[in-house]
Design a protein around this nucleic acid. Sequence first.
RNA 1: CGGGGCGUAGCGUAGUCCGGUAGCGCGCCUGCUUUGGGAGCAGGAGGUCGCCGGUUCGAAUCCGGCCGCCCCGACCA
Length: 489
Amino acid sequence: MADDKKLTPRAEDFSAWYNEVVLRAELADYSPVRGCMVIRPEGYGIWERMQRALDDMFKATGHRNAYFPLFIPESFLQKEAEHVEGFAPEVAVVTHGGGRKLEEPLVIRPTSETIIYAMFAKWVQSYRDLPLLYNQWANVVRWEMRTRLFLRTMEFLWQEGHTAHATHEEAKEETLRMLGVYRDFMEGWMAMPVVTGRKSDSERFAGALRTYSCEAMMQDNRALQAGTSHDLGQNFSRAFDLKFQSEEGTEEYAWNTSWGVSTRLIGALVMTHGDDIGLRTPPLLAPTELVIVPIYRKDEERDRVLQAARGIVDRLAEWDRRNPARLRVHLDAREGIKPGAKYYEWELRGVPLRLEVGPRDLEQNQGVLVRRDTREKRAVSLDSLGEEVAEVLQLMQADMLEAARERREANSVRGPISYDQFRELMAGAGAFVYAGWCGSAACEAEVKAETKATIRCLPDEEFRSAETPTHCLRCGGPSTDEALWARAY
RNA sequence: CGGGGCGUAGCGUAGUCCGGUAGCGCGCCUGCUUUGGGAGCAGGAGGUCGCCGGUUCGAAUCCGGCCGCCCCGACCA
């Protein structure tokens, strides 16, 4: 960094900027173990708020939490052919325990389908036992070659939903319902717009019939897969003998779904909303929504201002008890640090609102309220502060989503595009390109080899272009699906 | 695992070519003065120069080996 105090600008080096924000906002730090990370309180606080919101949404759609073990017998993984093939290369295996070699090695879960459906098989006999709607909050391990803070680490935190149903119809509904829940969360809580759709076969989850995903655009115009929902068909129920007796008395295999989002979402949040000053946290996910910075010169002023600031905290707490907004307020009463230094620090951390309170303000029974997203300053009366703050926070939440949506649309390309134009675009600024696809894996692979871009998804109807593409982006043959092409993380 | 780069204080680095007292900025500690957008002054703490070995009177610097990290590829939430 040329200037120790400033971040590398996004336009100069997006990756460097991202790392600096994560480290300096104290979201996370590198661990002594290669590829692993420590999530620090600032980052974990965001994760806790994500967890709370998602968990409520899962419960509201009928799911219950459970916990399955970290260790899985190696043989379990072998039972579903595609699943082993997909995960074997990145699985960590425990071969020794208690000073002895294990008879059967244990894999550390890279995902829990196998052990969960093995257990489901024990618990399900009749159609009356279905559906089973489970979720678990857990850590998983995947032996990644190249890692990046939050986006790809060898161990990460996530939730994985696993369900079993009597009919494929019901399982399909569940798969799409949870994709919708993710979308609602990402847009409503993270203020991050996503494109939903189905994955192509080559991007499908190992062992799934169909995979659906939420794809978000980061500020470098690359795509980030933010969440996936899988229709597993009967692949795992057959592998683990998850059968039930139907109403008609016949023996049937259950239909499964699984779906997950991870701490990667914190990385998505940074890359969606961060600016050259630091993080910008959407109010609903901010561990602290409002920071109060007292301003004073002399000792006499300090006592007066701090007392008033504490009064404001109390009044907001009181206001909070009467209103559902649940304001999270912090008073920065540290001495010996100038107000300006505090501003920079809280802006780096992404706290949505700041209230400056000094002697001049108190004379007029007001404070200066500053928005982190627009940095707009406004004097507000201390009498109506609760209402004012709640209102601005709500507005910010909406504005941030809208700003992110506008940015995404400004960097999306629709309509006829030549392959040369496409290559140029992918080599340069990047974009979400909606274009035709002939359905062949070969074309998809060639595009990837030539441009590093992949099919992020075959977008759901509402995201498709008004004019359906007629030709494949790569081969020019007849298009069977409109695809969203982009370089991805 | 293939190609490239780098390991010097908590962080960022100079010094390495050409061997000779290990320096700077930020941060940290103490004191005083400051405090409406990153404070100033004074004093101070902190280093087996990644590790092991060799050459030499003498190695951060030269030589050999090893380890680790970063970037680019193949793999991925």
